[in-house]
Amino acid sequence: MSVQEETFLTPVVPLDFTYNYYIGQYLTRYFKGFKEKKILGSRCPGCSKVAVPPRKYCGVCNKVMEEMVELPQEGTLENFTVGHVTMEKGGRLSPAEKPYVLGLIKLDDKASLLLHKVEGVDPSQVKAGMKVKAVWKDQVEGDYWDLDHFEPA
């Protein structure tokens, strides 16, 4: 069934569908914490694990994580990757202007790891186990990027 390219129609679809997501009760609490430069998590009444950012359910215990706890601003870099590419929306890859570090950060032994940018360190010098601390924007507004990045403590 091999056929020529000309056989096909190749329509351009100039449509980008828009979605508007409600962030729900728990992420709302997280951002309220940001307004006071606090990192909040929700604690499971079953296994006492703390989810950061907070969410309603602990899937392991099937329990509602009603209790909010404040986490320290300093933690350990548990795992990291150095990005040499960036992925645009829609999954297009392009080379990064310069290498950058993404890290999974442990703020507390009971807390889930938080994925964030790690700056202020040469990517080739990054090591797992490094101590890192939160760096906030000067003006916090209760928004995603108030917690701007982590840097070596």
Binding site: Y21, Y22, I23, G24, Y26, L27, R55, K56, Y57
Partner: peptide, 12 residues
């Protein structure tokens, strides 16, 4: 419109 919950919260 359920403005008070995100999708998994509503499903739960």
């Amino acid at each position: 419109k359920r403005r008070d919950v995100c999708i998994p919260e509503m499903i739960s």
